[in-house]
Design a protein around this nucleic acid. Structure first.
Length: 575
RNA sequence: CGGGGUGUAGCUCAGCCUGGCAGAGCGCUGCGUUUGGGACGCAGAAGCCCUCGGUUCAAAUCCGAGCACCCCGACCA
């Protein structure tokens, strides 16, 4: 590619709204351009990197016996009705109507389509196992796109779906995908940790996320400093810090004016947060209905409610804090809410921390009063007792074996990939069955496996850059070689030699970005650094006088001179 | 959806407070000089000052409404 013929330009300054390094560099180097919130165009350079990522993924998917398909983006809404996700995923679905007034959906993901397709062609256990995958555009009406390519409304995803006869088969498919993922991320040179994850709206039993750790990430993960436990904060388990066990004392109502928060309460009574019971009131919207119901969550005062755990427990798709109208409707006194004497209309959920701690201070459901020495089961009970607490930095690992337990460390990261054991959710919805070897109908069990391609692009830049620009890993680089010709328009010897070299390198099967522009050397070097191709060679009048070509690796400070006749051979050694 | 911020040339931004000719740097075009880390000179092109409405003799500037974009949170396959 001759740069004189390139489309797109490098920028000295990044646009003001690019916050993260990867966003800034990708825009400055002319790889992507923003059209609207969460909607980007790929320029020629960016598209070449994207294609490289896709081919790495294809290679590993094919090696894992995946079969590539391409499923439609435009989908009739009725298959989404069948899976009930027209309802449960309504917030992210782009919907439209065709001429006949039929509702259509722009695919945010493809479980419905793949299951429909699979049902048509698979009849027998002999058709199993199968792993089908595609690399496709996904459309999701995100409430808040952010971070350049990190959270967008239109993006490219590799999604794979496995179909097996039983759990054992699923294990094999799942493991082969996990292995493939590790190979993919390693080829892209992105450090990844895999963590236990919540499966969210997609459903299913177990899932694992592949997280790229970065302070710009939007997910929080907790990692044990002793065992190999790591989990998304939405899912992470921990052991409640122990409190010295005491005998239950008599419950007593005391005056506590102006103490509507845990902080005020602990200051006023000169006690610790873990001596209190905190009440959090929500209206929950059930997964498959619109009618909200009230929830009273109780947790020890030093802990925070984990809304994901809570929603999973009560099978809700949304939690919103109770408004003043709701509070008065259920006779709850804000700031003094109490599980003791609560309206029976409200479902009470207690975190396990509550039942393990004696003599807690709780609200009295009366302005200006709290109860001291409340004890679970003696003074009140909950509808459910469960783990609904958020794990955080320094908490005790729940998975360590033995006496010495590790502590959890908290880190931010970006979800690059997610694998799910889906189970029979979709095959059941779509009545997908095959005959097993005994001639009986059997419902296949599914797994699904996603990787965000645009996110790999972003993460790679986050991981591989310096103050001058991007430093692409060899396999992702838009071109193999960056050929810089200084004085291209003034020195015909340079022009001739560089042009010849350009052709010879291509004849070797390598791709070259050829800077034949009429620009000062400084501009060419700055652009080369910004664009980040790992190998740069320079032809110049100065080098010509010595019959050498200069070779510099992007990640290195120094360069070396290669004799003209050796340059091709030297370049070949890199590939 | 809640909170905060920003909309002026392709990009970064000044001008707005205190109403009176539409500005700078970078980029772009032409000519010339320069040529190993974003070089210099001269001459140019480039604007719906986000939109609509209001106040005013006069609005980029003041007032109102709306829209867009960014950040934090909520949400998130």
């Amino acid at each position: 590619m001759r740069m004189s013929n390139q489309f797109g330009r490098t920028l000295r300054q990044a646009p003001a709204d690019a916050e993260t390094i990867s966003h800034q560099l990708l825009v400055r180097a002319g790889f992507i351009d923003q059209l609207s919130a969460g909607i980007y165009s790929y320029l020629p350079l960016g598209l070449r990197v994207k294609k490289n990522i896709e081919s790495i993924i294809r290679k590993e998917m094919d090696a894992a016996n995946g079969l590539e398909v391409l499923l439609p983006t435009l989908q009739p809404a009725d298959i989404w009705e069948t899976s009930e996700r027209l309802f449960t995923m309504q917030d992210v679905l782009f919907k439209l109507e065709d001429k006949r007034g039929r509702t259509m959906v722009l695919g945010p993901t493809h479980e419905e389509v793949i299951t429909t397709l699979f049902s048509k062609f698979a009849n027998s256990y002999r058709d199993l196992p199968k792993i089908l995958y595609q690399i496709q555009t996904k459309l999701r009406d995100e409430t808040r796109p952010r971070g350049g390519l990190v959270r967008v409304r239109e993006f490219t995803m590799k999604d794979a779906y496995s179909f097996d006869l039983d759990e054992k088969g699923l294990d094999i498919s799942y493991t082969s995908m996990v292995d493939a993922y590790h190979k993919i991320f390693s080829a892209c040179e992105i450090p990844i940790i895999s963590v236990e994850a919540d499966s969210g709206a997609i459903g299913g039993k177990g899932s694992q996320e592949f997280i790229f750790l970065t302070d710009n990430g939007e997910d929080t993960v907790l990692i044990c400093n002793q065992c190999n436990y790591a989990a998304n904060q939405e899912k992470a388990e921990f052991i409640r810090s122990e409190k010295i066990s005491t005998q239950p004392l008599n419950i007593e109502k005391i005056e506590t004016p102006e103490t509507t928060t845990i902080d005020q309460l602990t200051n006023f009574l000169k006690i610790h947060k873990n001596d209190t019971a905190k009440a959090v009131l929500y209206m929950a919207i059930p997964r498959n209905e619109d009618k909200p119901f009230p929830i009273f969550a109780v947790i020890r005062g030093d802990l925070e409610i984990n809304e994901v755990k809570l929603m999973n427990l009560i099978d809700a798709r949304e939690l919103t804090p109770m408004t003043d109208e709701h509070l008065s409707q259920y006779d709850v006194i804000p700031g003094y809410a109490s599980p003791i004497g609560i309206s029976s209309e409200i479902r009470v959920i207690a975190d396990i921390s509550i039942t393990e701690t004696e003599n807690l201070v709780a609200g009295a459901n009366e302005v200006g009063y709290h109860f001291i020495n409340t004890n679970y089961s003696r003074d009140w009970t909950a509808t459910d007792i469960a783990d609904i607490a958020t794990a955080d930095e320094g908490y005790i690992c729940a998975k360590c074996i033995g006496e010495e337990k590790g502590n959890l460390r908290s880190a931010r990261g970006i979800e690059m990939g997610h694998v799910f054991r889906l189970g029979k959710t979709y095959t059941s919805y779509f009545d997908t069955t095959v005959l097993d070897q005994f001639g009986k109908q059997s419902t296949p069990i599914m797994g699904c496996y996603g990787i965000g391609i645009d996110r790999i692009l972003s993460a790679t830049v986050e991981e591989h850059h310096d103050k001058n620009g991007i430093i692409w890993p060899e396999k992702l680089s838009p071109y193999n070689i960056h050929l810089t010709a200084l004085n291209f328009n003034q020195d015909s010897a340079v022009a001739e030699k560089a042009t010849n070299l350009y052709k010879r390198i291509q004849a070797e099967g390598l791709s070259v970005l050829f800077d034949d522009r009429e620009e000062n050397p400084g501009v060419k070097f700055k652009d080369a650094d910004l664009i980040g191709i790992p190998i740069r060679i320079t032809v110049s009048s100065r080098n010509n006088a010595d019959n050498v070509i200069e070779l510099k690796l992007r990640h290195s400070e120094t360069s070396e001179k290669i004799r003209d006749e050796n340059i091709i051979q030297v370049l070949q050694q890199f590939f």
